[in-house]
Amino acid sequence: MLSIKDLKAGVEESQILKGINLEVKPGEVHAIMGPNGSGKSTLSSVIAGREDYEVKGGSISFEGDDILELDPEERAHKGIFLSFQYPIEIPGVSVSNFIKTSLNESRKAQGLEPMPAGDLLKMMREKMELFEIKKGYLSRSLNQGFSGGEKKRNEIFQMAMLEPKLAILDETDSGLDIDALRIVANGVNKLRSDDNATIVITHYQRLLDYIIPDFVHVLYDGRIVKSGTKELAHELEEKGYDWIIKEADQC
């Protein structure tokens, strides 16, 4: 589904990603871990098409198509979703309006008619239940005055509405208390299927107790220095990153 080969990217002179290789197949959950500044958020931004980063080499293909030349909105239309570490507040635009616009823009790109208002509302209600979101939330301004936890829950709610093929959750666990974490993780798990894939970016192993990954990758200094299964996450939790960094630096 997603194939990243020798990806090099950075901002102006500084190179942040120094040759990333990653294969994600439908139905898989990949966790990307790593210390601060290792390039985790850069990787997610580059996949989603953020223009601030310059891709200097390598390729990203999604379902066989090269996506590096595509605008962020075009990547979204193809089914890539990025949940933000710091979701943006947009006063005056309600959650329901935003989701409606977002959903219908994607439908438009796929040559579909806008979703009928009744169907949309029904879908919203179902997904709200999934994430234990209260009534009245839909008419609030997007993320404005939301707590950290509400913002993250709202991100996952949007993800549920947009039904992406590939979801990238960037530090979704930060700012979540344990109950919110459980709700968000349960929601993500319920949305998992054989057709879609998830990349979970996180500092801590905690989230991976709830969203069980098939693969765990450690990102350090712009490269994936170690890959393994979920046990690797446990090992990291116990021993920290130092031993991997040492291993990597020796290479």
């Binding site: 962020p72 979204a76 947009i90 005056g92 635009v93 959903l103």
Partner: peptide, 24 residues
């Protein structure tokens, strides 16, 4: 970028942010 990553085209995303700016 946030809006565009949700599938909203650049022009519309800009417009949405302008609405938000003028909203109060």
């Amino acid at each position: 970028f946030y809006l565009r990553s949700r599938g909203i085209a650049k022009k519309e995303a800009q417009a949405m942010l302008m609405y938000a700016f003028a909203n109060d």
